[in-house]
Design a protein around this nucleic acid. Structure first.
Lengths: 258, 258
DNA sequence: AAGTGGTCTAGACCACTAT
DNA sequence: TAGTGGTCTAGACCACTTT
């Protein structure tokens, strides 16, 4: 006979090679991804149970779970307790946009220069008072900067931080402001948490001049509010950048399969 | 004596209650999160090894790994193989912006109405030809729609799909176009993958009129390109919405702790 | 009742890092 | 060499869903 029972059952499935450098769960995730892409498990359909996959490929349930966990994180399948694991159609709800495009500006201090345009004490305006939870007219410090990448201007920054010299942390951060907390990976950050919002805007005359862009051109504004470890907001402000500097792209569904 | 050796060692740490509804890994994740928020493990510092945490709380290593995995996904800690697990300062690199704010528009068909403004065959312009990989002048179908939420206009849509009636899938999708593929969770989607880009723009006169917004007001444009299961692009277009309709917000760092 | 995913154990070996 | 995280096993019990 040409094939035994095992081969007959597994005729259409690939095998896990435990000698490969790639771990078993990653190999299995790739196999399942190919099967989904090939239409074996259509959108909305159910993939086999974890225990049956484990038997089929000679893996323990925990390893199968890890493989399916990868597909779940990628938004390709959805686990329903007591019911099964189902292939998801691609949906906007699962999309996540990251800020990787501007990460390099802050991760590579050698190629980035920060030019301080202004740093001066002032009285909090209404919006700053509201954002930082201050009484109107309280003292804050206004900071405006221009960020240059390879000596080319890429981002404008305007921010306000608490002016409270009993707080050594704020004083110590004045040279770089919330920049370091928001962008440096490691280091003695004083920020415990922050809120970020991206809004569309257009370059005003000053931003246009600084960034060498046409006034009125659509741009992104990244607004932030930073809290210290006592949950007190100590700084807020925004960065303005051209769309090609701050790219918000993402991919959904089955990419890089087979 | 008031305390035995065990209590002495554990005096500062909480315990895992296995009778609680909350699973052990979630309880441990919450404990570690509180310890990080309390400054016991400062940013850049190392948390104890997985095995020592397991001994301390009476959990197996796999369970401890699951707890630390939660913190890792939240961007609070970083695992370094052979070295340890370290507390991360908050960083923009870890931020992820989602489109939850517009999900409701498509998930609730009852409260949403799609008004078709135009649907007509045309010859592909240069950009469409490039996007869909067509020869210039190939036939496509132009679709323009207005999306209303509770009878209030919220989004404009303009898209182009392949005009190839040998492809039943495209024909079948014409009534709703790529909308269904992009937004419906389950169902017989024909889209295998898609690319999404968010860019800043301003309302043109027609969009302003349709959405009852001031012309020239900054707005978001969500551009998409959808591929079928043969990896052939079959539709592209964009949605335009006011900033309050399409909200891009996120939180970084330690929220909802203690 | 049967099947599914969710959690958990008590080990094991490996690859990597630091000393 | 010792310690760390990365992977994996072969079970177990539970909560949940479906039949």
């Amino acid at each position: 006979m040409l094939s035994d029972g095992w081969e007959n059952n597994q005729a259409m499935s690939e095998r896990i090679d435990k000698d490969r450098f790639e771990p078993a769960y990653a190999q299995l995730a790739a196999i399942l991804r190919r099967q989904i892409a090939g239409g074996i498990y259509p959108p909305g359909g159910k993939i086999p149970s974890e225990s049956s996959i484990g038997k089929q490929y000679g893996l323990s349930v925990m390893t199968v779970r890890q493989a399916i966990g990868v597909l779940t994180e990628q938004g390709l399948v959805e686990r329903v307790q007591g019911c099964g694991t189902f292939v998801k159609s691609i949906t906007l709800a699962g999309s996540r946009f990251g800020l990787e495009s501007i990460e390099g500006i802050f991760r590579d201090p050698a190629g980035t220069r920060v030019k301080i345009l202004r740093m001066s004490p002032e009285r909090a305006d209404a919006k700053t008072a509201e954002k930082l939870g201050l009484p109107g007219g309280a003292r804050v410090i206004l900071i405006r900067r221009l960020l240059l990448r390879e000596e080319l201007p890429v981002m404008c920054h305007e921010g306000r931080v608490l002016c409270d010299f009993t707080r050594p942390l704020v004083e110590a951060e004045l040279d770089v402001g919330p920049l370091s907390d928001l962008f440096r990976g490691h280091g003695g950050g004083v920020a415990k948490k922050s809120e970020l919002t991206i809004i569309p805007t257009v370059f005003d005359d000053e931003e246009a001049r600084l960034l060498n862009q046409p006034e009125g051109r659509p741009a992104f504004r990244l607004e932030y509010l930073v809290y210290d470890f006592d949950d007190i907001p100590f700084g807020w402000g925004w960065f303005t950048a051209a769309p090609e500097t701050m790219v918000l792209k993402t991919k959904l569904g089955l990419w890089d399969v087979s």
